[in-house]
Design a binder for these strands. Structure first.
Lengths: 256, 256
DNA sequence: AAGTGGTCTAGACCACTAA
DNA sequence: TAGTGGTCTAGACCACTTT
């Protein structure tokens, strides 16, 4: 046994080496537990503890039915938050079809099939959103909650919140994609002059993991964009949950 | 036993409820394993498996010496990437003391004690950095690797890479803080006209976890900023590893 | 039917820390 | 010294999938 390592750590160390060296490539099956038990002469739970270390590092996923596999991620979707806001201002209108919103059309341009499940409701927003929108303690918000799929795989949760008085009675209250030149806010006569993005990184909640079908040890970025009008009044707050294994966030900025 | 739950999940469910309801607050100790064994009548490994589910969710940390505790995070350091680049242009010079770099002075303004360990070396950069700097396959880079501490707790890893020919023989090659109006690039006569930020989210490598003293289930953001001159030539690539439990990333953008 | 992993038990020994 | 958790074992039973 290696110096200063438990037996489980030794198993993890050996497997990690094989993975990092490419000897075990992404998608390959790990040796079975019984194989490793006889190879090392360790008990089953010890072998399992070793493999669990790699699962917690995100290097190994456990196939539903049987077998454990070296984790293999699809190339991440690049999410350009800089151009997302401005792209629609320059876009030519799409004729003869429902173009969907900015996200959906960006995905379509890439040759993939976007889909969103949208539910609209009037809610007491979560504390963080309430702060962003500068709502009073009893202020209500219109929430548009979406689950975004690409090629029928879940990719992100995107919940938009609007101060109720700004949007009641507008198309924003309908649970459908909203496509409009200038973006969803422009469609109800609001102009966004500034935005503020906040990104934090954490493990998903149980619910988020379930909705997004996340493998073990998949962290998420919580991206909150608050949009303001020219007077600095908050118009919208969008909270997006981006799984780390399928997203890359991009900003492009010209230094003035 | 609850329907559709294993015993371990039941234990996790109960504890999670107590944590989310505030009945168990941040920093509180969980009941001991033996207490829960007699409370539930389950074996020790089963109880431990239940608690492990919460550890993997990032809700529970296992105290160094003994005891398990509800996770309690310090308020995150807000990292404003928009102003970090421009702040130094407007900053008044600090007289009579070594001001450190932009990061250090931002932390000091907040009343905390920054510290960095810097090592400078000439390296073959990692593939991702090579791409960002548009270096040929055998191109070398000057690497400034820093470990950043606040009040003697590690906060981030920040590795900057410069194309070798741009900086050889400049103060950038010395392993010291570089403080200059206009930023570190200006100090060697380079002007950054544009930058491009890439953020991805993942679990830390073993090494990162060790350098940053990360608790279990602490994901990180890998932030890569590439700076370009007015002709679009890459000047610098900075890779920052930001632990999710102590950072929040901020961007503030005026829609043009 | 054979092989996989998932769950669970009842022990054991150890290192550490607090009283 | 008593109590904590960390590691490890040798079983067992189960659900699932592949052949």
């Amino acid at each position: 046994m290696r110096r200063g390592m438990t037996k489980a750590q030794e198993v993890a160390y050996d497997l990690r080496e094989q993975i990092e060296s490419g000897q075990l490539a992404g998608g390959d099956a790990l040796p079975s537990e019984s194989k490793m038990m006889s190879q090392y002469g360790y008990s089953r739970e010890t072998i399992r503890a070793g493999v669990r270390l790699l699962i917690d590092e995100g290097l190994v996923v456990t196939g539903q039915g049987q077998g454990k596999y070296v984790r293999e991620d699809y190339p991440p979707v690049v999410w350009n938050w800089t151009t997302l806001e401005s792209r629609s201002r320059h876009a030519t209108a799409v004729e003869g079809q429902t173009a969907g919103d900015q996200w959906a059309s960006a995905i379509e341009e890439n040759g993939n099939a976007p889909r969103q499940e949208i539910t609209v409701s009037i809610v007491e927003p979560p504390a963080h959103v309430r702060e962003c929108l500068e709502l009073p303690a009893d202020g209500l918000a219109v929430a548009r909650k979406r689950i975004r799929y690409i090629d029928n795989r879940p990719y992100a949760l995107a919940d938009s919140y609007f101060p109720q008085e700004l949007v009641s009675g507008t198309p924003l209250m309908e649970p459908r994609d909203v496509s409009a030149p200038g973006g969803i806010l422009a469609s109800v006569g609001l102009v966004q002059a500034k935005y503020r993005d906040e990104i934090s990184v954490r493990m998903p909640t149980r619910q988020e993991a379930e909705l997004l079908a996340l493998p073990a040890a998949t962290p998420i970025a919580e991206h909150t964009r608050t949009g303001y009008d020219a007077d600095g009044r908050p118009l919208r707050c969008m909270v997006t949950i981006l799984p780390g294994d399928r997203h890359k966030i991009l900003y492009e900025v010209d230094t003035d």
